[in-house]
């Protein structure tokens, strides 16, 4: 396999890992908050989080290009270290991927938090566990399948990202040229052998990711019964 493919594989894995970690850190409190009882506006927030499920990636890509650019907040951040834009950077891709994959992490987490209900937390409270303690020693272990599903889905979905990266990445080898863009280039330039190589690999990877998720899900169910 040639170097360009390996470089894209490495970059894609680093991007997906970074995105998944960021999403678990940001998504856990968000999902927890969404899982607690609350008003209709909680559903409004949940709907915003879920938007990438239905929006075409081109919509996200277009807005991101403007947001990351010199006239948006991204440009403002970039100027703090002497750059002009967050587009065409790895950091820009992480921001895009976090938004794009957020529902795939938050939704399973929220479901997991909701699944065990108020009861275990109330019991923990009567045993005088502090709220933070209740969260880390009761809620998180009980929601473990949700964390696994969310992590697998968030990771896999980021690996499979194309439209957003295409629109804000600028196709810089080792920085923003991920696998899906690399496949597109190979098909465009009629290098079908290389395209087959990555596309086949992606197919196997995606199958394994979904299989893993289903196994987790099945275990979860068996434990409940």
């Amino acid at each position: 396999m040639d170097d360009a493919i390996w470089q894209a594989v490495r970059l894609t894995l680093v991007l997906a890992t970074t995105t998944t970690v960021v999403l678990l850190v940001l998504g856990t409190p968000l999902a927890w908050w969404l899982a607690r009882p609350g008003g209709w506006w909680k559903e409004a927030v949940a709907a915003v989080v879920s938007l990438p499920l239905v929006l075409p990636p081109t919509v996200l890509g277009f807005y991101l290009l403007l947001m990351l650019g010199p006239n948006g907040p991204g440009g403002w951040i970039a100027r703090s270290y002497g750059a002009n834009t967050l587009a065409f950077t790895f950091e820009g891709l992480v921001i895009g991927s976090v938004i794009y994959s957020m529902p795939f992490v938050v939704q399973p987490l929220r479901n997991a938090f909701e699944a065990f209900g108020e009861r275990p937390l109330e019991v923990a409270a009567t045993l005088r566990a502090a709220p933070v303690d209740r969260f880390f020693s009761v809620a998180v272990p009980l929601a473990r399948p949700g964390f696994l599903t969310g992590a697998v889905l968030g990771f896999a979905h980021t690996v499979g990202e194309f439209g957003v990266v295409l629109m804000v990445g600028g196709s810089i080898p080792g920085e923003t040229k991920v696998l899906s863009v690399q496949i597109y280039d190979y098909v465009e330039t009629l290098q079908w052998r290389q395209a087959h190589l990555i596309a086949g690999g992606m197919l196997v990877f995606s199958f394994l990711a979904i299989l893993a998720m289903m196994v987790i899900d099945k275990r979860l169910r068996r434990r409940r019964h």
Binding site: L65, L66, L68, G69, P70, N71, G75, N84, G170, S171
Partner: peptide, 15 residues
């Protein structure tokens, strides 16, 4: 990926 996108990058000021 194509000349249209190169144009977008410049038109939005990102490049």
């Amino acid at each position: 990926n194509n000349i249209g996108q190169a144009y977008q990058f410049v038109a939005t000021g990102n490049a």
